[in-house]
Computed example of a mutant assay.
Amino acid sequence: MRDDLGEAYLGKADPIDDRIGARLAELRSQHGWSLGELAERSGVSRSTLSRAERAETSPTAALLNRLCHVYGRTMSQLLSEVETAPVPLVRATEQQVWEDRASGFVRRSVSPPHAGLRGELVEGRLTPGADIAYDRPPVPGLEQHLWLLEGVLEVTVGETDHRVEAGDCLRMRVFGPTRFRGTGPGEARYLLAVVRP
């Protein structure tokens, strides 16, 4: 069973989902918003928000993107906020990996987490046929450089479509919707450099 943003219902929450849920509840509380107010600001149903905060679901990338937009932070910032103490070096085996099982998207936070920095590196992997659409950027004017390492990726920025092949780099400043599609036949793997305005 899935709802309006396609989060997957879980029997038992992953520890990262527990920490994300707690952080989302904390952010809403810091802003003094009820679930209803957050639902109006984000366009996400109250029941979906409640389940995400209680870690009864594993939130999708689209859901987290909408909430990051409302709270004015990137997804990496949100995920870094559920980590322990910030460190200057993070080993490959310790880099946080988050998976949107419903869409076939895996996201690795390559950069050491630190909420105060403007730039970050993210590795993304999309299975063939994966299709992720964001209706808005988490932070308007976000600068992104997508370097495709393997596969083929179709990227739509606003009204413009781009076919990105291995070795290509797409630079974008995001103010509106974006869409990423893994066109196969193999997995699309990319490095994304993200710079907050």
Rank of each mutant, 00 (worst) to 15 (best):
M1F: 14
D4G: 05
D4E: 15
L5T: 10
E7D: 09
L10R: 09
L10N: 03
L10T: 08
D14V: 06
D14C: 03
P15F: 10
A22N: 00
R23E: 13
R23N: 03
L27Q: 15
R28Q: 11
S29C: 06
H31N: 14
S34K: 15
S34V: 13
A39L: 04
R41C: 01
R41P: 01
S42G: 04
V44Q: 02
V44W: 00
R46C: 09
S50D: 07
A52V: 06
E53M: 04
T57E: 02
T60G: 07
L63A: 04
L63Y: 04
L64Q: 00
N65K: 00
C68G: 04
Y71E: 01
Y71C: 02
Y71F: 08
T74M: 02
M75D: 03
M75I: 13
M75L: 15
Q77G: 03
L79C: 01
V82K: 03
E83Y: 00
E83G: 00
T84D: 08
P86R: 00
P86L: 01
V87H: 07
V87T: 13
V87S: 09
P88K: 02
V90P: 01
V90R: 07
A92H: 10
A92D: 12
A92V: 08
E94P: 00
E94C: 01
Q95N: 00
Q96Y: 05
G104I: 10
F105T: 15
P112A: 11
P113V: 00
A115T: 09
G116V: 11
G116K: 13
L117S: 08
R118V: 10
G119Q: 11
G119D: 10
E120H: 12
L121I: 05
V122S: 05
V122C: 07
G124K: 09
R125G: 08
R125D: 08
L126Q: 09
T127G: 00
T127H: 00
A130E: 12
A133E: 13
A133I: 10
Y134F: 15
D135G: 09
P137N: 11
V139F: 15
P140F: 09
L142K: 03
E143D: 14
V152Y: 10
V152G: 15
L153T: 07
V155E: 05
V155N: 06
T156L: 08
V157Q: 03
G158I: 02
G158F: 06
E159I: 02
T160M: 14
T160S: 14
R163W: 14
V164C: 08
V164L: 10
E165Y: 01
E165K: 04
E165A: 09
G167K: 07
G167D: 09
G167T: 07
G167E: 08
C169P: 03
L170N: 04
L170S: 04
R171Q: 05
R171C: 05
M172I: 03
M172N: 03
G176R: 15
P177S: 13
R179Y: 00
F180H: 14
R181A: 03
T183R: 11
T183L: 12
G186S: 10
E187M: 12
E187R: 13
Y190W: 15
L191W: 10
L191D: 06
L192F: 01
L192I: 04
V194I: 12
R196A: 11
P197A: 06
